[in-house]
């Protein structure tokens, strides 16, 4: 697994030679500084801590400032930990850039979704709207909550409520292009959160290469399994 911290800059599009357009999210990723190396002996597991984006000393809390001073690294706004299977190959103070990824690689991006406040069922759960005319009064209503026989509202019933401002992971985005000079990653597809939003696009994390392929066949197998079952029912 590879981790890098970044910020979402916005979206644009790329043209291929044959004119096909790819919508891409541009992420300013890295450079990240290794601020701590955790070892099995000391902390009980192997990991590295990455810091991203400088912050003035006065903006940094004193305990953190002390930690940064100790390793002789400028204070950083973001700190995230990356778990490792083997002892770390990097030292404290090493720089990680967006070239830790390759073009064509799949990555996961974590972002904080834009807050939508108290949202109804249409926005929150993709419910359908009722008719607007002919005397209908149930335009954006959630509809029936349960049957009379059940006599209660089932736990987990999808209703209106607070929506957004939550951590969302966009999985398996393809790295389309890498700009090492400006530390930019071009990812195919969208990422949760606002443009330039601080923190939202916090990391691009590759799914373990071994895990990624089984995921798709499983889903496909599930779909196939479901389809024949339906046919049997019809018969």
């Amino acid at each position: 697994m590879t981790l890098i911290l970044g910020r979402k800059l916005g979206m644009t599009q790329l043209f291929a030679e044959d004119g096909t357009v790819t919508g891409v999210t541009v992420v300013a990723a890295g450079p990240c500084v290794v601020t701590q190396v955790r070892t099995k002996d000391k902390e009980g597991y192997d990991a590295i801590q990455l810091g991203f984006e400088d912050v003035p000393d006065k903006r940094c809390a004193k305990p953190q400032l002390g930690a940064f001073r100790k390793v002789n690294v400028a204070p950083k706004r973001f700190l995230r930990e990356e778990r490792l299977q083997a002892p770390a190959a990097v030292k404290v103070g090493d720089l990680l850039r967006c070239d830790v990824f390759k073009v064509g690689q799949k990555v996961d991006v974590v972002g904080t979704m834009k807050g939508r406040g108290y949202a109804g069922t249409i926005k929150r759960h993709n419910f359908q709207r009722g008719p607007e005319t002919h005397g209908c009064m149930n335009v954006r209503d959630p509809g029936s909550l349960a049957s009379k026989r059940i006599g209660k509202v089932v736990k987990g019933k999808r209703l209106g409520g607070h929506y957004g401002a939550s951590r969302e992971t966009s999985k398996n985005l393809t790295v389309v292009r890498i700009d090492l000079e400006r530390n930019l990653l071009f990812l195919k597809g969208s990422v949760a959160g606002p443009n330039d939003g601080f923190g939202p696009v916090q990391s691009a994390r590759t799914p373990p290469q071994k895990k990624a392929p089984p995921q798709q066949p499983k889903a496909a197998a599930g779909a196939k399994g479901a389809a024949p079952a339906k046919q049997e029912k019809k018969k």
């Binding site: 800059l9 916005g10 979206m11 644009t12 790329l14 043209f15 541009v26 300013a28 400006r182 930019l184």
Partner: peptide, 12 residues
């Protein structure tokens, strides 16, 4: 200039 604008000028 915003970086996205800059990029679009370079790419287009």
């Amino acid at each position: 200039m915003h970086l996205i604008e800059k990029l679009e000028r370079e790419l287009g």
